[in-house]
Amino acid sequence: MYSQPDDVHTLVTPESLTCSISTRSVAAIHALRLARPLLDATGLGWGPTGSVGFELATGKPTATPDSDLDLLIRADDLRNELPLLTSLHHQLRALPARVDCLVETASGALALAELADSRTDLLLRTPGGPCLVARSRLS
């Protein structure tokens, strides 16, 4: 179980920020507005992270004109969800800000961009550190 440090007041998950709104005119925030219906249509858990997620969680303006949109998607059945995620990746590439998306699985997190291309080896980010895994071993 996670032990919250004394100086942390509130834990906010990316999923809890999906309906949060910022009226600031920054490309990454605008991209989030456009991405919401695409991400919601997947039926997968998702949420913003990075500077946009921090801004939505705190109300402090942290996204800059050069910020990308960092996203997290939670996938339970990666092998079956891969076609959906690949299609989503292509749609996200058309947004007005660069989108950096991690797909979290039970084994760790993978970059959506790596999943969507034909790489045979993928970087899996785990609590024990990063490791290369063969695409064929993904579940």
Rank of each mutant, 00 (worst) to 15 (best):
Leu115Phe: 04
Ala116Met: 09
Arg125Ile: 03
Leu112Met: 06
Asp77Pro: 00
Gly59Ala: 02
Ser16Met: 11
Leu56Met: 04
Thr58Met: 04
Ser136Thr: 12
Ile29Ala: 04
Pro65Arg: 14
Leu84Pro: 00
Glu81Val: 04
Leu69Lys: 08
Thr62Glu: 03
Gly129Ile: 04
Lys60Asn: 12
Gly43Ser: 12
Asp66Ala: 15
Glu15Lys: 05
Gln4Trp: 10
Arg137Pro: 00
Ala94Arg: 11
Ser51Asp: 09
Ala116Phe: 10
Ala31Lys: 07
Thr58Gln: 05
Val8Lys: 07
Glu114Tyr: 05
Thr58Leu: 02
Ala134Cys: 10
Pro14His: 13
Thr120Leu: 12
Pro61His: 01
Pro61Ala: 07
Leu115Asp: 03
His30Arg: 10
Val26Pro: 00
Ser118Glu: 14
Pro130Ile: 02
Cys101Tyr: 15
Leu85Glu: 03
Gly47Arg: 02
Leu56Asp: 05
Pro127Asn: 05
Asp66Leu: 14
Val99Leu: 09
Ser107Ile: 03
Pro5Val: 09
Thr23Val: 11
Leu17Val: 02
Leu92Gly: 10
Leu34Asp: 07
Thr86His: 08
Gly129Met: 02
Leu44Lys: 11
Asp100Glu: 15
Pro37Trp: 06
Ile21Gln: 15
Ile29Trp: 07
Gly45Arg: 09
Ser107Phe: 06
Val99Phe: 11
Val8His: 12
Pro96Gln: 08
Leu82Ile: 06
Leu71Met: 01
Gln4Arg: 15
